[in-house]
Design a protein around this nucleic acid. Structure first.
Lengths: 202, 202
DNA sequence: TATTAATGACCGACTGGTCGGTATTGAAAA
DNA sequence: TTTTCAATACCGACCAGTCGGTCATTAATA
């Protein structure tokens, strides 16, 4: 009377991991459902037991992706370091994460593009804007602390937070393009130094 | 004995303009050839008189796009201004261009994603990396001048050039996402000020 | 044996590209 | 001036291939 039973969550996760791998090989615009099935070692129909549609797989992956990355940052930027160190570490941790998950980087840009609102129709990933605001708030809070504690001069922290995110986005793009080397350990320092000290003479 | 003759280049251009409009409505991953035909007021078959394939239309548009933008920069950053002003103007001109061509911004990210190399197969826009290097060289040269003329302190100009491009990429993304307002005239100044002076206290 | 999980053959909607035919042009012939 | 005609431009119905999603069937489990 007891039926066959599997760990639904675990299997869903296995499909997502397979999907992320497929995304990095073929890109979000090119992959087929059968690719994921093959990568996960299951039948195509089985995917539909865990996801309602192709779109659902993509958004599911995006959520896992952002969640993972957010966790890395939150646990890496502990309370022990000062605001200046936090900003430096933000870049270090990001670079580290992406160099350990090279396949995630190119996927990121497909997600980015899929989050762009179009004149007609909803973006594929509507939560993108929300996620972005979360990161902005997080960074702006660090900057505010830094001003209070005299590490930073008073400035528009919301805008600076966006600049920091912009730099990170742009650099990840350059890494995927092959313009910079994500493994270059001196890069995070150079970047944070530029942002902190500027390039102007005096 | 003389056949009907049309200005091939002009018509090709008309198709590209129509395509750019379609791209911004539907995105590069969603548009159909018939969309472009309708937008250009011609038959679908006619497109294939001017382009060999759907892909060819996309890469053709990319080239026009980069060409246009490069021209704007080259003519805007005249020889009369000093290196510091040039950096500031780089952001001003870019913002101006994209606020005047809002439809181009979201297309830019589709291009970006289409330029990303995948493990299997060639990227849709292989010239992306090359174009990026061109912009980097251009900016690095301005920075070198600035160091020589004592506007900037000595630093790694290649990396800074990439940071500047990264900031621009990231901000355009934010604009498309609706996180920042591209019309905000104070933004280019804030950004160049941050890059020039830094945020550190002393 | 009851119940759930897994499957992959199948369906049908969709679309890139083709191609046979039509329209337009302007120089040359009448 | 008018007609002719060959070269070119244009068109959209059609074809062939593709792929997301379904569901009847089978397998596994307790």
């Amino acid at each position: 009377m007891s039926p066959k039973v599997v760990d639904k969550q675990k299997k869903r996760d296995r499909i997502i991991r397979a999907a992320l791998k497929v995304f990095s090989d073929k890109g979000i615009t090119e992959f087929k459902m059968i690719d994921i099935a093959n990568a996960a070692g299951i039948g195509k129909g089985t995917i539909y037991e865990y996801f309602s549609s192709k779109e659902d797989v993509i958004t599911g992956c995006f959520e896992i992706f952002m969640h993972d990355f957010g966790d890395i940052l939150a646990s890496g930027l502990g309370e022990k370091s000062n605001p200046k160190e936090k900003i430096i570490n933000f870049f270090k941790l990001s670079f580290q994460y992406f160099s350990q998950h090279q396949e995630a980087m190119s996927v990121l840009f497909d997600f980015w593009a899929a989050g762009i609102p179009r004149k007609h129709g909803t973006p594929l990933i509507p939560s993108m804007k929300y996620e972005y605001f979360e990161f902005q708030k997080y960074l702006a809070a660090i900057l505010e602390d830094g001003i209070k504690e005299n590490y930073f001069k008073p400035h528009d922290t919301q805008t600076t937070a966006l600049i920091i995110l912009a730099v990170l986005d742009g650099l990840m793009f350059q890494a995927v393009l092959g313009v910079i080397d994500i493994e270059d350990k001196s890069l995070p320092d150079k970047i944070s130094n530029t942002l902190l000290e500027g390039i102007s003479n005096e």
